[in-house]
Amino acid sequence: MSEGAGMSAREVILARIREALRVPAPLPHGLAEESQSQVRQPQQRAAVTTSGAASAGISVAHPSNRLPSLTVLPEEVARPWLPDGGETPAERLRLLIENLGKLRAIVQQVPDLTAASDYLFTIARERDWHRVAWHPHPLVEPLLAGVPCATYRVDAADFDKNALESCDAGITSCEALVAQTGSLLVSSATSGGRALSILPHVHVVVATCDQIVATLADALHAAQARYDGHLPSMLSFITGPSRTGDIERILVLGAHGPKELILILVG
């Protein structure tokens, strides 16, 4: 197909892509050379499982009558070749705390929200906070009553980025905690928008133990199920406090985001 003068950039690029894909490509280097003849067959409709792909737990199917697509086999959803996320709640809790420790995040386990509130009071005193930002949430609001400083409530109706910038800490809830990597999944829907978890110098996350999931995939699937196709405009995996290695590859915490990440784990 030639690129006509009247075609839009979109049409031209899509035409180039269609033209380019008329010749199929072999499977990735190192994967099941013997199955390439099957993949090259344009008319092949039946699902083929290549040996390399199968050992990776992935089936190669030809739904479009032309090119293969990949679906993860059900028994392989757990992806037992990725870093371990833990089989039991106790294991997941242990892995989460271990991973967060390596990332230099601070984890404080508390039995209930009253104890969480006491802990927040203590760290606010220790760090001499003047103002903390928060967002309305059942896990966050009860903690604010006793903080020994001014507060700023992040509100969709009246958001002021200058006010947020002046805050020492941001206190948020989260979507999930990932044992596998020590990541916290925050979103614009459940963590007070986009800036609250990144602009203040300290990020305090309040979460419950039942929010711990094993893997990144579990956290993503849970978010997809919860929002049922209407995902928040931002979903972010936070894995430790902000960091950089740009100067001589030496690790420094607190590049542009929070210098400290504190998880208060309730229950």
Binding site: K161, G193, R194, P232
Partner: peptide, 16 residues
Amino acid sequence: CYNTLYAGPRRPGEAD
């Protein structure tokens, strides 16, 4: 440290 997924601009009800 940050792996962030963006789905369009601010939604109604989101703070920022």
